[in-house]
Design a binder for these strands. Structure first.
Lengths: 198, 198
DNA sequence: GCTGACTGACTAAGCGCTTGCTTACCATGC
DNA sequence: GCATGGTAAGCAAGCGCTTAGTCAGTCAGC
């Protein structure tokens, strides 16, 4: 029995090539600044081939946004599940969240800054996942405040600020910059714990 | 002697109407998602009238970005100039910066997230102003560390995080939301001082 | 010989920007 | 007091080009 796919690792399948090309293009020029030809050409196909795999340019963006958000939701849930102590939970969550936004900054930029280009239904779908991510963070902060481990005059706004700080890493992080993702993540863990008054 | 202009305050001059329409449109749909007809129609003019006041759509964006950045640079310099104590200086700076990004969130969103649409020369011009803003923040943090008022393992990254936190307010702040600009600004002042270990 | 991935050639619509012209306003000369 | 000429702002129309998306047909692999 041969494996399902015999494609070489240098040449991923068409869907993957389209997704990568779309992320790069959307991150660089934005959704409306990117043409379907930019994407299909970068993926090594004709303009029409994009429509074999996706109904429209908007649906391609939605696919990227949905996959990316679902992945981040699982990421933060896994971070919190590793411990019972709110201090460790928040530290791990911020560290994992920030590292991910530094490593995958290109994709994260698309996911966070191109949502306005989605249809109303698709945007609502994404906002629901974002709300779930919010809830995970807020729950950790609330439990830390309840246990006396954290002290903050507004747990809600502090939770928002923590997430906001992590998201913005995707905007400024550069692969050829001063810090590695791990260095940023470690420093942000400290900043986050200070912000909640741990 | 009559005043120079007798136009009613309800109907500002053409340049102002164009600027406001452009900010609204760019913030909602992005630079490439906005047509020159969107802008001119919202300003109550024909498509051609835009070109009486601006050489191109890109130059209109550049004008908005330049004015906005110059204003923020003056804002943070004024915040720092009000005191000699790094703790007060940083608190005032963050409070003023965050309040401004909440009040003028629409314009700030355009200024911070549409820079990729600028020409190389225009983008370089804006990045130079942003660098000056960075320097103001970094200088306050460095002096706080030197005086022993602040304690942070990486003053450079902490300065970046402080600015990053303020910028991202423009992304999430809503006029009909839970908090007033003053409330957000006051809370962020506390968060900022905790982040630097004051 | 059927299926699914893919292409070249195409279309309708929309884009930024220009053109040729009109209008409103104002300083100047008489 | 008023014609004259200059200027800035504005518009209707439309040019040249690009866009997202379509479609009939090709072809490799099962």
């Amino acid at each position: 029995m041969l494996p399902m796919s015999a494609s070489t690792p240098q040449e991923p399948d068409a869907r993957t090539r389209l997704a990568r090309a779309a992320i790069d293009a959307f991150a660089t020029r934005g959704f409306h600044g990117t043409t379907t030809r930019d994407i299909s050409t970068a993926a090594g196909m004709s303009p029409a081939a994009l429509y074999v795999h996706h109904r429209s340019k908007e649906e391609l963006l939605f696919g990227l946004a949905h996959t990316g958000h679902a992945r981040v939701l699982e990421l933060v849930r896994a971070s919190v599940a590793r411990s019972d102590d709110p201090v460790t939970q928040l530290g791990d969550l911020v560290e994992d969240f920030v590292r991910d936004h530094a490593v995958a900054h290109t994709g994260a930029r698309v996911i966070n800054y191109e949502l306005a280009a989605l249809s109303e239904e698709h945007r609502a779908d994404i906002l629901a996942i974002r709300h779930d991510i919010d809830l995970v963070v807020r729950d950790v902060v609330d439990r830390g405040v309840a246990s006396g481990a954290f002290a903050t005059p507004d747990a809600h706004m502090t939770s928002l600020a923590l997430l906001s700080l992590g998201i913005d890493v995707a905007r400024w992080y550069r692969d050829d910059g001063r810090w590695t993702p791990d260095e940023v993540a470690a420093h942000y863990r400290l900043l986050a714990l200070r912000m909640v008054g741990a």
